[in-house]
Structure formats: structure tokens, C-alpha cells
Design a protein around this nucleic acid. Sequence first.
DNA 1: ACAGGCTGTTAGGCTAGCCTAAGTCTCAAA
DNA 2: TTTGAGACTTAGGCTAGCCTAACAGCCTGT
Lengths: 231, 231
Amino acid sequence: MNATTRSPQPPLTRSVEDYLKSVFHLTSQGGFATTSDIAEMLSVAPPSVSGMMKRLSETGLIEHVPYRGVQLTPQGRRAALQMIRRHRILESYLTSKLGYDWGDVHVEAEQLEHAVSEKLIGRMADALGEPRYDPHGAPIPTAAGEIEEAELVRLAETKVGSSVVLQEVGDENTERLHYLAEQGLTPGVHLAVIDRQPFNGPTIVRLGDGTTRVVGQELALLLLCRPVDGE
Amino acid sequence: MNATTRSPQPPLTRSVEDYLKSVFHLTSQGGFATTSDIAEMLSVAPPSVSGMMKRLSETGLIEHVPYRGVQLTPQGRRAALQMIRRHRILESYLTSKLGYDWGDVHVEAEQLEHAVSEKLIGRMADALGEPRYDPHGAPIPTAAGEIEEAELVRLAETKVGSSVVLQEVGDENTERLHYLAEQGLTPGVHLAVIDRQPFNGPTIVRLGDGTTRVVGQELALLLLCRPVDGE
DNA sequence: ACAGGCTGTTAGGCTAGCCTAAGTCTCAAA
DNA sequence: TTTGAGACTTAGGCTAGCCTAACAGCCTGT
């Protein structure tokens, strides 16, 4: 009679939803999410995280190895993916249908994702034609809870001389997103990596229109690219 | 240095927003909202209301006369109208743009109204062409906080022989709304009051298409009508 | 005028979620 | 092998918001 066998789940609180999302993101490369990383991501003190982790492992949403970190259980992963789906559908909808700028959607979606019903998300997805990527290029989980896992490489780590397509911008900061949009660095754009300065210096790329951009290391780490074949 | 002079207001909690809305609705005919009416409307116990009323009058949102009831201060009224605007814009948007049925929008809007930003409400209102009434015919407060106050009469209280236009359905119950829609009793419809049975019996009306409806007292109290001139 | 019933308030307790302060564990470097 | 820094947890306390039980005020009927 462990926790996962209880059928009628109480609805998750807003707070729990946020913790699950954080754990999902922090473990997306595999491994454990640490207390302090979660605390930082959610802007709470570490003991708050310890306390919540205790509760969440009791309800079977996470696996907690004390002093090591946490991972999502299948049930927790399902819940996290549902939240991420909501978030990304909302971002897409606000952008396409209500004229939001891709730099502004995140904050709004962050609030709404806790309040929308599955039905509403379904209607929005439908109105958008079941989009597969959000405005930042991140894959949208399906209603069934499946998410595409692409092998992307950060622009900062691409080989000089290679050709890539900017696939996803792994950031939600409004100012950075506005800057990137100004520079024409949005998902789908084709980039030729023509140079990179030493000592974590900027990467220099050429866009499809022949113009070049100098992309500092900080930003180049956020730009996730798909290598183009033939290179 | 009373509460209303403090400039930087903390954001209202979800709970506070709900209390203010209740007080607004309960005092819309003038007078005081009582503890027990608020408790019933929000499905909480009366002492919870007493406690909240204490806090709200300390923050200057309501005026509390112990053992009498409460009224909104101008500041409380402003906040309540903002919530009502959000609710009604959301209902309108969900109905027009996302194919929601007028019986289902209320529950969804009830959740969303606490999460949407003013900006989003503005975008939705804009997309709808600044609607003045929600799908139930209720007036939508302006962004400036003004609301139309029409003199409507319940269908149950109309004079036999008079002619009215159904203006607003003062109810949010899904089943009742579905039933009314089936009967063609939706805002804007023209009704001739042709008879009423005694002892709070049903009202009999004729629609524009010549068909008649027998409307029981319970429903007839929810149908708010505008008398048509010339009778 | 006052008793009883209803409504409202106070008292006291609970949970979720947050905090700070004070331990406890781990691991790497000496 | 020991030790210390840093990460984690436990202890204890706070607020918001809810509850039930007990008390207080109001008002109507006699």
C-alpha cells in the first residue's frame, strides 16, 4: 500500500507544481536535482526545499535520496510535463493570437499555467493547429505526456566552420530575448559559424542574408542549435 | 495615517479577491452584506468571514459595522470591479474565441480571473472589440472601473400583457444555462408576457417566432428584462 | 420587559509554505 | 586519517486562511 497506489489524487497546489517543474528542468540532463539548485530556481531558502521534498516523496511524486538530491517518479514526471505543456501552449497562444512579444510571454504564462484547465489548453492547442514548438523553439509535450528530445548543441560549442540551424533559445529573460530578436537570432534561422575568439570569447556567425553577428559566450550558451548535414 | 493613505499596495490574494467580489454582488442592491450570506456564497464557515472582514477593514477595502454587515469602500469597490471586469472579459473571450458554451465559461473564468494580468485582459477586450456585455448579458465594467447600472425587472415580476427584451441571465449554473439556451431564452430575445399562473406560478411568454414558453418561477426570477416602450 | 433563537464574534487549533538558526553529513585536501 | 568547508536537514517560529466550539449581541413574540 504505497503512495502510488492511492487512486483519488488531490489536486496539486501551485507551489507543488512549481517544484515539480524545477526538478524536471534540473534533471533534464540526467542525474539528481540538488536542494540548493531548486532553492535558487524558485527563490526560496534551502530548508523550504528540504521540507517540500519530504512531502513530495511521501506523495510519490519524487524520489528523494537525502544529501544527494531528488528525481521525479513517473507520476511526478507526468505532472511536470503537463505543466510544461500548459506553459508552452500558453506562450504560443499569447504570441500568435494576442500579439504578445516572445520576451513577455513567459511571465504571463507562469501565472496562467496554474489556473487553466486541460480543456482550455486543448482548445488553445487546437486553435493553433497543435503546435510542436513554443515561440522559443522549445518542444511542446503532447497531451499524452510525450516530449521530443533533440540532440542540440549550444552555439558556444559548435565547431568553427560548421553550419547550424538555431533551434531553441533556452532562456526566458525578457531583455535578452528582446536583444536576440533585434539581432535576428530567432528559432529557425540558419547560421554559419565563421569564427570564435579564444578564452571563452564570442562566436562569430553569418546569417542567411550574409550579415554577421558577434555573439558573446553568455548568449552563445543559450542558443541551442541543430547541426546541418553536409558538415 | 489611516490605511487608505498607504501608497504601495501589496497585491491582493486570491482569497481576498473572492471576498471582495462577494461583497460587491451582495451589496449591489444597496445595504449591507451579512456575514452568513458571504459565508454561504464562498462556501466557508461564518467565523472565517468574520476574520477576513476584520483584515479587510484594516486594509481599508471594506467598512465593517459589527453585527450589521459590511460594505465596500471606494477602494474595495474599485478592486471588486476590476475582478468583475476580468471575469466577464474572460467569459466573453472564451465564448467568442475558443468555442466555449455559455454554461461552461463561468467555472473556467473563476479560476483564470485570479491569474490574468491587466495587460492580457486588455488584449482580450481589444480582440473582442471592447464588448459591453458578457455572454450572460451582464455589463462589463470599463478599464476605468465604471459599470452600467440598468433598471431591469425580473421576468417573474413583469406585467401580463407587457412586452420586454431579455437582457441578462442572472445565473451561472451550467445546467440551468443549458436549459435556457435550449429554450431560446438568451439575452436579446424579445418576449411578450402573455400570462402568469397564480401563487407564484409560471410565466407564459411568446417569443419573436410566435412559439411560447412556460417559465417556472425559479427561472423567471433569474431572467432580467428591459421593458419595451409602447407598453 | 424579557426570554429564546438566530446571527455574529471570539478563542483556540490546524495545515501549507515560508523563514532563520542550529545541527549533521559528505567529500576532498592535507 | 583527519579535518574543514560547503551542502543538507532539523528545529522552531511565522502568516494566511480555514475549521469547530463557545460566547455575545440583537430582536421578535409574548
